[in-house]
C-alpha cells in the first residue's frame, strides 16, 4: 500500500523585508490511518508544514524545496484545477479559529454543501443532506435547525464542530488540524478531542494534529514528532516520547508541562528563546539553550539517529543523555 504521506527534505524559506528559514530539511512519513501530533512552540514550523501540504504558502514570497507526496500524488507540482481537486477531497484542514475560517455571510449548511457539490458533483439537495448527516456525526444537537444557522449564531465549540464537519464532508484521506482546540475552554476541548478520535477511527483517515500542548498530543495521537527551529528533532510513538524523550528539548518541554511538579519548587526551565532563523542553521539550533551542549554540537548539524523502528532523534547525545539523567 502506498504511504499516506512522504515528505522528503522539505525546506521552506520566506523572503521579503527579512528572510526566514521556516522549515529546514524536514522529512516525515505516515502510514494510512495514522495519527501524528506535530509538537512545538510558536515559530517552530508546525503550521508552515501544514500549509505547505495544502499548497497554501504565498508563491511570491516563499520558496519551497524538497518533495511532498500524499498517496503518491506529488503535491508541489499541483496547480490550478488539480490543486483545487486535491484540497478538500484528498487533504483538508481544520483551523484554530473557526470564527475566522467560516464565511460569515453563508449558513453553515450552505458552506458544507458547497464543498460537497464542488468535489462530488452532486445536486444541491443531495449535498445538503450530506451536510445534515455530517452535522449529526459531529454531534451537533438539532442538526436540522443548525443547518440554517450562520456562524455567529453558534458557540465556539459548535463552530469548531461545524469546521470539522466541513473538513470531513468529502472524506479526505488526510486531515490536518492546526491547533483546533487551543481557543476552546478545557471542558469543550476534551469533547472535541474525543470527537476527532472517534471520527478518525470511523473514517479511517490519517490525521496530523499540530499542538503546543503535550497533554493534547497524548489524547489524540499515536505518534509524536517534536519540532524546533524548523526541524524535526525527535519522533516516536506517543508512549516513547512521553516516557523516554531523548532530545533535551523534548525533555524540557515535558518538564515545562508542570504535570506532577512539586508546588513552588524551582522549575528546570529551558533558558533563552528560540532562534530567529534569519540564517539557515548549520549547527544544532538548540545548542545555545541546551544544558548538555558540547563543542561538536556547535560545529555541525547533528545527524538524525534512528534508534529502533521509526524512532529517531537528532541529537549527538541521543543515547548518552538518557544515561546522564
Amino acid at each position: 500500500m502506498t504511504k499516506l504521506l512522504e515528505i522528503n527534505d522539505l525546506t521552506v524559506r520566506f523572503s521579503g523585508k527579512r528572510t526566514v528559514h521556516a522549515i529546514n530539511n524536514v522529512s516525515l512519513s505516515m502510514e494510512q490511518g495514522e495519527t501524528l501530533a506535530l509538537l512545538g512552540e510558536s515559530g517552530s514550523g508546525k503550521s508552515v508544514t501544514l500549509k505547505a501540504l495544502l499548497g497554501l504558502l504565498p508563491p511570491k514570497r516563499s520558496s519551497v524545496e524538497g518533495s511532498i507526496h500524499v498517496n503518491g500524488t506529488d503535491v508541489l507540482s499541483l496547480s490550478g484545477k488539480a490543486l483545487q481537486r486535491y484540497r478538500g477531497a484528498e487533504v483538508s484542514m481544520v483551523f484554530q479559529e473557526p470564527a475566522l475560517a467560516l464565511d460569515p455571510v453563508y449558513t453553515v449548511g450552505h458552506q458544507i454543501a458547497e464543498s460537497v457539490m464542488r468535489h462530488k458533483g452532486v445536486s444541491k439537495a443531495d449535498a445538503l443532506s450530506t451536510a445534515l448527516d455530517m452535522l449529526d456525526r459531529v454531534r451537533i444537537p438539532s442538526a436540522n435547525r443548525r443547518l440554517h444557522s450562520y456562524p455567529h449564531e453558534l458557540s465556539g465549540g459548535m463552530r469548531q464542530r461545524v469546521m470539522i464537519a466541513l473538513a470531513l464532508a468529502c472524506r479526505p484521506r488526510l486531515l490536518l488540524a492546526d491547533e483546533p482546540t487551543t481557543a476552546l475552554d478545557a471542558t469543550v476541548q476534551i469533547q472535541i478531542l474525543l470527537l476527532l478520535r472517534e471520527l478518525q477511527k470511523e473514517f479511517g483517515m490519517g490525521v496530523i494534529f499540530v499542538t503546543h500542548d503535550i497533554g493534547v498530543a497524548v489524547e489524540i495521537s499515536e505518534r509524536v514528532a517534536v519540532m524546533y527551529a524548523g526541524q524535526i528533532v525527535e519522533e516516536g510513538t506517543t508512549r516513547e516520547i512521553i516516557r523516554d524523550g531523548r532530545h533535551p528539548y523534548t525533555q524540557g518541554l515535558l518538564a515545562a508541562n508542570l504535570h506532577d511538579v512539586a508546588r513552588g519548587a524551582r522549575l528546570n526551565a529551558i533558558p533563552g528563546a528560540p532562534p530567529a532563523l534569519e540564517v539557515k542553521p548549520d549547527a544544532c539550533p538548540f545548542a545555545p539553550r541546551c544544558s548538555h551542549v558540547m563543542p561538536a554540537c556547535r560545529a555541525a548539524l547533528p545527524p538524525m539517529v534512528t534508534t529502533e523502528g521509526r524512532r529517531r532523534v537528532a541529537c549527538l547525545h541521543a543515547d548518552a543523555v538518557v544515561a546522564a539523567e
Binding site: G157, Q189, I190, G215, R239
Partner: peptide
Amino acid sequence: RSLFSAMPSMDPDDRTKEPPLVGDP
C-alpha cells in the same frame, strides 16, 4: 470535578474515555 477531569491525560495508556461535560457553558 468536571474541570479537573477535562485536563488532558499525560498517560498514553490511560487516555480520557468520556468528556466530563456536554456542550458549552
